[in-house]
Simulated scan of single mutants.
Amino acid sequence: MNRTARALGSSGRGALRLTLYLLWTLLLIPLQALAVARNWRLCRTLPAFYHGACARLIGLDVVVRGQQADGPVLFVSNHSSYLDIIVLGSRIPGSFVAKSEVGSWPFFGLLARLQRTVFVERKARASVDKQRDDIGSRLDAGDSLILFPEGTSSDGNRTLPFKTALFAVAARRIDGRPLTVQPVSIAATRLDGIPMGFAFRPFYAWYGDMDLAPHLWQAFRLGGMTVEVEFHPPVTIDGFSSRKALAEHCHRVISDGVARAISGRPSVPAPAQEATSPAPAPTAASA
């Protein structure tokens, strides 16, 4: 069997990984449920430990670049797959912002609720203020949140336009300081050391009308995948004329990060925020 064939899948490997994933998940569900019910600090730290183990079980090699800002932070990321949840969840001690339908999904909806996901109705304009307040109250409590502002998943080769409505929370001030917003780019780059390219990337990306179960089974069968995550310099709304300008900045920085990762070009520091008035420089920068 050649290298490409090995990378593309083994049913035995898939069955073993799936079994271990289910056992690991079922083992931790009661503990996380109790931690959430009692509001223990564990409910905020256990998910990162859980996702880290899941990434190793599934064969995801997560390569991280840049410096992660201290919370509370609104992390803004591109989105191409349910695997992004495992990758980012293993590195960021926070909760996700997800569309409301996710909460009703079998099994995965339960996992989302146990991670204290903030569910939003993206199509209801009348609920924007409520969603902003729900997100803001979690940030006020010291939690970091992870937002996918594309509103859907992409093919992983590009970053879709960002929806600006949820950037309204960026105007919130935490203890008198503007909320920290950190762009994060994520890209699947290699499959068993082979550059993924357009041909292989759909094995990671889940988008359009793809069926979940076959895609998930294929992901468990695959060889090891390298996923690159880059934390870009954090910014605040104070450096921009509007939330739209902030969203455009995040989109540009993330798009550039994804393009560099999938092309294999070395990472370079992202441009500084385009301030409309003098503002302090960001306190953290890419490594």
Rank of each mutant, 00 (worst) to 15 (best):
Q115V: 12
H251D: 04
T159M: 14
F162I: 13
S11T: 14
L60Q: 04
V62M: 10
D133F: 00
G89M: 13
V63P: 00
E248T: 11
Y21L: 13
F198E: 15
T45W: 09
P93C: 11
G59M: 05
R38A: 07
A126W: 10
Q182M: 07
T283H: 10
V62Q: 08
T236M: 04
P183W: 07
L57V: 12
R3E: 14
L110C: 12
W206Q: 06
T25V: 11
Q131Y: 03
S80Q: 12
P278C: 09
L22K: 10
F231W: 06
L191G: 01
F49S: 13
R125W: 11
P161D: 08
P233G: 09
D129P: 00
P282M: 08
Y207T: 09
F220L: 10
N157F: 00
D61F: 00
A69Q: 06
A279K: 00
V235Y: 10
L147F: 11
F220P: 04
R260C: 04
P269D: 14
A247I: 00
I237Q: 11
G264H: 08
I237Y: 04
V62E: 03
A187R: 08
L166G: 11
F75S: 04
A33F: 08
I58Y: 01
V76E: 00
R41H: 12
V87S: 05
L147K: 04
G176K: 09
A124Q: 13
I135T: 02
F203Y: 14
G71K: 07
V120H: 02
A199I: 13
H249V: 04
Y21V: 15
V229H: 01
K244H: 09
P93R: 13
Y207F: 15
A199V: 14
D61E: 15
R138V: 01
I58N: 05
I58W: 05
F108V: 10
V227E: 03
L166F: 13
H79E: 10
P202V: 08
N39Y: 01
H232Q: 13
S100V: 13
N39Q: 14
G14T: 10
G109S: 11
Q218A: 08
T180K: 08
V97Q: 02
A126N: 12
L8D: 07
T159Y: 08
A272H: 02
I146G: 10
F162V: 10
F200I: 08
I85G: 06
A112H: 01
Q115G: 09
